[in-house]
Amino acid sequence: MKAVALLLLLVAGPAAARETIGVYKGWAAFRDPDRCYAIAQPVVAGGAARWRPFASVGNWPAKRLRASLHVRLSRERSRAAPVTLTIGERRFELVGNAVDAWAADAASDRAIVAALRSGRSMSVEAVGASGRPFADSYALSGAATAIDAAVLACAG
């Protein structure tokens, strides 16, 4: 229950602007005026950040984006270092800026979401701006249900 409360704080903002679709173990699904998304916070964060790290899979109907990954890292990364997402035996290279990372293209998004659906955990690894490596780890229990709930919420 503590994790659910923290998850709800993670996406805190104007209550009228966001509708809770549901909470599914460590993942939750929300709808706001522009998008629907599934979101989780790491069970282990690689650093004490000034912001809350998260992983989300979002749908933006007006932009025709569906099941698009976005990760907010737990600390600022070195821009010279890659960001690697690992789910089971699968590894994906992400693109992004100092604190955010995304799949490189729609095909990568589809492969990542397929891996999320069948995986038990995922980690996002990078090298911090200080030069020290770090990893943020996520449990995937509830991810598939939250992703489906977000897709369905934006379908209508």
Score class of each variant (00 low, 15 high):
C36W: 01
I87H: 02
V71I: 15
I147P: 05
A29F: 14
R110V: 14
R50A: 15
G58H: 02
E125F: 04
N97M: 07
E19F: 04
G22R: 11
S56V: 01
A81W: 05
S78F: 04
T86A: 15
A38K: 11
A104Q: 13
D32L: 09
V151R: 00
P14N: 08
Y37S: 00
S123G: 12
A67L: 01
A62F: 00
D105M: 12
D100L: 11
W60S: 03
L65M: 07
S121H: 12
T84M: 13
H70C: 04
R77D: 06
I39E: 04
G58A: 03
Y138V: 10
A115E: 03
R72E: 09
R52A: 08
A38V: 08
V44C: 07
G128Y: 02
I87A: 05
A103H: 04
R117I: 10
T20L: 15
A139I: 06
P61S: 00
P82Y: 02
I39H: 09
G47W: 00
A17N: 12
S137P: 07
G88I: 04
V43T: 13
R66V: 13
A149G: 10
W51N: 10
A153V: 02
F92S: 12
W51P: 10
R18Q: 11
V57C: 01
S141T: 13
A29H: 10
W60L: 07
W102L: 12
G47M: 07
F134Y: 09
T84F: 02
A143K: 03
A144C: 12
E19A: 07
P61H: 01
S56Y: 01
V99I: 14
G13Y: 00
G96L: 05
V44E: 15
L69N: 08
I87Q: 04
S141C: 04
V43K: 11
V57W: 00
L65G: 02
S141P: 06
L152A: 14
S56R: 12
A15F: 02
A144E: 12
H70G: 03
A111E: 13
R91Q: 15
W27H: 09
V99A: 09
A143I: 08
N59V: 06
A146W: 07
R91S: 14
R117A: 15
D136R: 09
A126E: 09
Y138M: 10
E19D: 12
A38L: 07
L73F: 08
G142Q: 09
E93G: 09
T20V: 15
A12I: 02
N59E: 00
A67V: 04
R75Y: 01
L69D: 07
L152Q: 14
F134C: 08
E125N: 08
G22N: 11
S137A: 15
R132F: 00
G58E: 00
V124M: 13
H70Y: 01
G131E: 11
D148M: 04
A144G: 10
G26R: 03
R66S: 14
A135W: 03
